[in-house]
Design a protein around this nucleic acid. Structure first.
Length: 554
DNA sequence: GCCGTTTTCGGCCCGACTGTTTTCAGTCG
């Protein structure tokens, strides 16, 4: 069985190699496009192929790619890629990730010197040999050498919460400058993506050339990569890249839309504009030379025949079609959250105070089975006396163990209000899908499934499983799926959230907090839910206490 | 390689910045 992510990887690697080969850029784009479609899809391609679904029905996948995908799913291999790999050394692909080296220059280096590795490239650059190539001057060579040194660092995306403070600080810094009217952090940050590659800062100012000058003096700037009138790029002391774009007020909406992306969403919107004979760029929407929109994002969308689309949805995952068909979701909001069903912190008093401050109607304090054996339930009863304004729930966490069973006595079971089954495996069992389904079916007292995909962002991938089957089963047995809001996990992911919802499963956004401060992490869970198209009624803990009682049998 | 009510060819998003040139190609987002 092959996952969507793995199919996508094969296609995008193929695109890399085709690029070096100097293939038609639009062909390469088609491969990348298909990779992205598959990676973002809420359908399981393994399943689609096995069920004989006609892949060419999907926009962006035609006759050829459809056959390629079938081959990949059925054999786990892609002959075209294997052929390309024999032809093109891996070292050339590595060179592509060097800043300033694209396919053309890599090919040029390879064709002229036969350089096939980074080490060799370094030698040629050091000895001045690269100088002989047309278009390679001292500055470019210096850049390449630097790129080789920094290669290891490249490609790592920051977690959203790691850049949050910096983003806000930059916003404040820029707002301090005279003449700056507005600052927006656009890009994947605005789309609330779990990881952020760089910060795209948009500034509205009259005299924007000066803003750029001011921006590159931001105290944490370590290196200025480029500095122009309307665009500048810098690197901060933690090697985070920050791009500044400055526009005038009249272009605010168009620029915000443009720089919020995603790229694929933008291309889709521009395509719609083209069909209407309009042109969209970062300055506005144009009919011939006449600007017809650009001040606000709403205006931009309206001019091309679309409704406003929330940034979290702009991934070209069907939001354009949904908008045209009037079925865009009304996304869940942080204010819809009525309680947190899983807080593990030790200081119960502080947790209850914080929960009250947050306006929660209920709060689940969670413990393992050992705590319950030591009288945790009685302890909570005392707090119930003291905190009457909030319903305190006794949440029991059960780790699904090696024998894939939940061992629990009736006595303990009577003591808790809510049982969470946690799937935290370093290595999941062979038939993980079956394991989960058995748990759902055999243990009706389990309310919530936690860490279903097991992922840790940038560190551990998702367990392989038939998630559609799992979600459908969970829906059938009224078992809920947890979104762990810890920003390092966000398990389950946005793509899986969407699939869960399509399968009619209901989710619960919990903080899993161990400190009161981490209780605020729940916002990251909400962001992820929004990216997964979740509405209020897809979220268990958006209901009032009364309704919750009925749903989970309190 | 994909796509199509200008449909089987000829398009494909578009602009800024840099470094190397002397008008532009390559790269990037």
């Amino acid at each position: 069985m092959i996952t969507n992510a793995e199919i996508a990887k094969i296609l995008s690697t193929t695109a890399d190699l085709l690029e070096i080969k100097g293939e038609n850029p639009f062909k390469i784009r088609a491969y990348r496009n298909a990779a992205r479609i598959i990676e973002n899809s809420s359908k399981d391609y393994n399943k689609l192929v096995n069920e004989g679904f006609d892949l060419t029905k999907l926009p962006g996948i035609g006759k050829d790619l459809s056959e390629y995908i079938k081959e990949i799913v059925k054999t786990g291999r892609f002959s075209k890629l294997e052929e390309l790999k024999r032809e093109i050394p891996q070292g050339l692909v590595d060179m592509l990730s060097i800043e300033g080296l694209g396919p053309k220059r890599v090919k040029q280096i390879y064709d002229s010197f036969g350089v096939t590795s980074l080490d060799e490239l370094k030698k040629y650059a050091d000895t001045g040999k690269l100088d002989e190539l047309p278009g390679f001057g001292p500055k470019l060579i210096e850049k390449i050498l630097k790129g080789i040194r920094q290669l290891k660092k490249a490609g790592v995306r920051f977690l959203y919460y790691e850049v949050e403070d910096i983003a806000e600080d930059i916003r404040k810094y820029l707002l301090n400058f005279k003449g700056v009217e507005a600052v927006e952090i656009a890009g994947s940050y605005r789309r609330k993506k779990e990881t952020v590659g760089d910060l795209d800062v948009l500034v509205i100012a009259k005299d924007y050339g000066r803003v750029s000058e001011y921006f590159i003096k931001y105290p944490r700037v370590k290196e200025v990569h480029s500095a122009g009138l309307t665009r500048s790029t810098v690197f901060l002391d933690n090697s985070l890249q920050v791009d500044l774009r400055a526009v005038s007020k009249e272009s605010y909406g168009a620029a915000l839309h443009y720089f919020t992306g995603s790229k694929m969403h933008n291309i889709a919107v521009r395509k719609m504009a083209m069909e209407k004979g309009l042109k969209v760029n970062e300055y506005g929407v144009y009919e011939g030379d006449k600007k017809i929109a650009g001040k606000t994002e709403e205006e931009v969308y309206k001019s091309v025949g679309l409704c406003y689309i929330e940034p979290e949805l702009r991934e070209n995952r069907g939001e354009i079609e949904a908008c045209l068909e009037g079925r865009l979701p009304e996304l869940v909001d942080i204010n819809d959250i009525k309680g947190d069903l899983r807080v593990k912190g030790k200081n119960i008093e502080a947790i209850l105070k914080k929960a009250t401050d947050l306006g929660y109607e209920y709060i689940g304090i969670s413990r393992g089975i050992e705590s319950f054996k030591k009288g945790f339930a009685d302890k909570i009863e005392k707090y119930r006396e003291k905190f009457k304004g909030i319903k305190i729930l006794k949440t029991l966490e059960l780790e699904v163990n090696e024998n894939l069973k939940l061992d629990i006595s009736d006595e303990i079971l009577r003591q808790c209000d809510l049982v969470i089954a946690d799937f935290n495996f370093e290595k999941p069992p062979t038939d993980y899908t079956r394991t989960v389904i058995n748990i759902i079916r055999d243990y009706p007292f389990v309310t919530l499934l936690s860490h279903l995909s097991g992922r840790i962002i940038n560190k551990r991938g998702e367990y392989r499983a038939d998630y559609d089957l799992i979600f459908a089963t969970a829906a059938k047995f009224n078992t809920y799926i947890e979104i762990d809001s810890s920003p390092q996990r966000l398990d389950i992911s946005d793509v899986l959230i969407k699939r869960a919802i399509l399968n009619k499963a209901v989710l619960s956004i919990n903080s899993n907090a161990t400190t009161t401060r981490d209780m605020g992490n729940i916002k990251y869970g909400v962001f992820q839910a929004r990216r997964g198209w979740a509405q209020k009624d897809n979220i268990l803990n958006s209901v009032t206490l009364n309704k919750l009682k009925g749903l989970i049998g309190l």
